[in-house]
Nucleic acid binder design. Structure first.
Lengths: 143, 143
DNA sequence: TATTGTTATACTCTATAACTATA
DNA sequence: TATAGTTATAGAGTATAACAATA
């Protein structure tokens, strides 16, 4: 088992990660909080899906997902249609307006991250993503 | 420079990390939110320090630090004395009560993380901590 | 009766800006 | 005038619980 001191170090790094996330959030336009971007991004990556699937991908409660999705739908960035086969469910789809917004934001974020990216580089980023995925495997069990 | 798709993956992993953090936060007792633990933990690791140093270690604004510290001080877990050499500053010190609380909580968290830890292991954890530290180097520049 | 989703409520964390006290 | 810290305010995120509609 990993030593206690390592968890303390991990906590430190998680704080730092929080700072990075807040820095990214700061460049987002008004009316488009981080939660909205997350929804749009996942929809773009995985294609249409139901609320429950979105909640799973976001790793938050469905009540939270519902609010984020409502915010995005109110602005016409995604479409919520009842599932014909189960009318309790709704199917989420990215609209052309939503796709456009996402494209514009990617450009803005890239400019913002310029100096940062050069320091990290492809290989480092790949490793980081892999490592971050590892601890997640156990989450369902100890929660 | 790392590809755009990698940042999308990274965003996913950060969401997952968020879920892990919330899971840990859930086992904390009332009256002792995550922010309080962070303050106590840093004080235990680095010894006495000033507010500005604490804010730096927490990676948040000093106004936020002030609130967390006040919460902890109100409960007698740390001591805030004016710095004799500069009475604008205050020196933060962990009290015996604070140390005791920290010890108790470490036990609780360890139990909670049991299944999780065994999956990750020492080497993985070490690597993860190292990797997490890497991207942080550039934060000051692009922020 | 069980499941999908929504809404009401409450709590934590965060930054910005205005303010006090000291240097 | 500049710096260390505090406080007031406002905004984002989150979960729990009660509720509606459908299976």
């Amino acid at each position: 088992m990993a030593a206690q001191s390592q968890y303390e170090q991990l906590a430190r790094q998680l704080s730092a990660i929080g700072a990075v996330k807040r820095g990214l959030a700061r460049v987002l336009p008004n009316d488009c909080p981080p939660g909205s971007i997350a929804v749009l991004n996942l929809l773009d990556l995985h294609g249409e899906m139901r609320m429950s699937r979105m909640a799973e991908l976001l790793a938050v409660d469905m009540s939270v997902t519902s609010r984020h999705v409502a915010h995005v739908a109110d602005r016409g960035w995604l479409d919520r249609s009842p599932d014909p086969s189960d009318r309790r469910s709704r199917i989420l789809r990215l609209t052309p307006e939503g796709k456009l917004l996402l494209t514009e934001l990617c450009g803005a974020e890239r400019r913002e991250q310029g100096a940062h990216n050069e320091k990290v580089g492809d290989v480092e980023m790949e490793e980081l993503i892999k490592r971050l995925g590892r601890p997640r495997e156990g989450v369902g069990e100890w929660r």
